[in-house]
């Protein structure tokens, strides 16, 4: 009875575009959905550092190297903002990290693909960050206050990521025939996984349900995917690259691009852990976490000793 009344008040707030804050009453499913979604988002930022970290020591110039370092540092920061937002829902950072490492929580499948050439750094920034931005711009209006605030901050920083990626791939597309081929190859490999980042079609998306009613999601997977494709086609044309989809064509009546069928078997196969790099990514995360243990211990011990000293003094 009490809950029914609270649920009604909660929905009224959502409908009136009033943000939900950590101490407000919320339905258990709303809390659970956010814990899952925000932590998955945080894990993606952190795991996403790995494919790019692979190229720090191999960047082709000093400029490219400092840019890449700055970008990866941003991704670490984005992970921090998101973990903090997730923690306001009553679960600790340590619990979220454990869920990732025990594979109870997921991260974006896109990071289970390898980054084989320098052109991939271009494709990742241009397409992967580009797709992420479309999603994140939409999430700036999500109904949970801490998540919305993290998104605003992230969106401000993320546009540099996409521009630096596009600069790399544009540069290579105008280079020698080998460089151009490398750029095209990167686009070929990253295109389909990038547009699948938005998730399954609305007709078979398992997590939509209340997410729309509760305004956690403001636009559907298919709407966001279409936005991304419409933006990106012209960017590929202008640098002389071809999007690897023979069915891609402008549909005057719809005012959008039509595009071909995505391979959902591959998508689910990678989600389930069978992508080219799933094991490598998780193993590396566990190793880095374990190797950082002595640092955390030293810091905690130091803080403890300082506190003791203050008590004595």
């Amino acid at each position: 009875m009490e809950d029914a009344k609270k649920l009604k008040e909660f929905q009224a707030k959502i409908d009136a575009e009033i943000k939900i804050e950590p101490k407000d009453w919320m339905p258990e499913d709303y809390r659970k959905h956010l814990q899952r979604q925000i932590s998955q988002h945080a894990h993606s930022e952190v795991i996403g550092m790995q494919p790019e970290g692979n190229w720090i020591s191999r960047a082709p110039s000093l400029r490219a190297k400092v840019v890449l370092l700055a970008k990866i540092q941003d991704e670490a920061g984005h992970g921090q903002y998101l973990y903090s937002a997730a923690e306001t829902l009553g679960k600790s950072r340590d619990e979220y990290i454990e869920e990732l490492q025990t594979e109870k929580a997921k991260y974006s499948s896109i990071f289970n693909y390898p980054t084989l050439t320098w052109a991939d750094m271009g494709a990742v920034g241009w397409l992967v960050d580009g797709a992420a931005i479309v999603n994140q711009v939409s999430l700036q209006r999500t109904s949970y206050g801490p998540y919305a605030r993290a998104m605003v901050r992230i969106c401000k920083e993320e546009s540099f990521h996409q521009r630096q990626g596009y600069e790399i791939i544009a540069h290579m597309a105008q280079g020698t025939p080998e460089q151009k081929a490398m750029a095209q190859d990167a686009l070929n490999r990253f295109w389909w996984p990038s547009i699948m980042m938005f998730g399954p079609h609305d007709s078979d998306s398992p997590n939509t349900g209340n997410a729309t009613k509760w305004k956690i999601k403001r636009e559907t997977n298919d709407e966001l995917r279409q936005k991304f494709i419409d933006k990106t086609v012209g960017q590929a044309e202008i640098i002389g690259l071809t999007i690897p989809d023979p069915d891609l064509k402008w549909n005057e009546a719809r005012g959008h691009y039509d595009f071909g069928k995505m391979d959902w078997d591959e998508f689910w196969n990678v989600v389930k852990g069978n992508g080219p790099c799933n094991k490598q990514r998780l193993d590396h995360h566990k190793k880095a976490h374990a190797e950082g243990k002595w640092v955390r211990e030293a810091a905690l011990t130091y803080a403890h000793k300082e506190k003791q000293k203050q008590l004595v003094a």
Binding site: S84, E87, S92, R93, D94, K293, R296, E297, A299, L300, T301, A303, H304
Partner: peptide, 12 residues
């Protein structure tokens, strides 16, 4: 060390 559990430190 007085049995401090491995963690990320306090929230600020």
């Amino acid at each position: 060390m007085d049995n401090i559990k491995d963690n990320q430190g306090d929230v600020w």
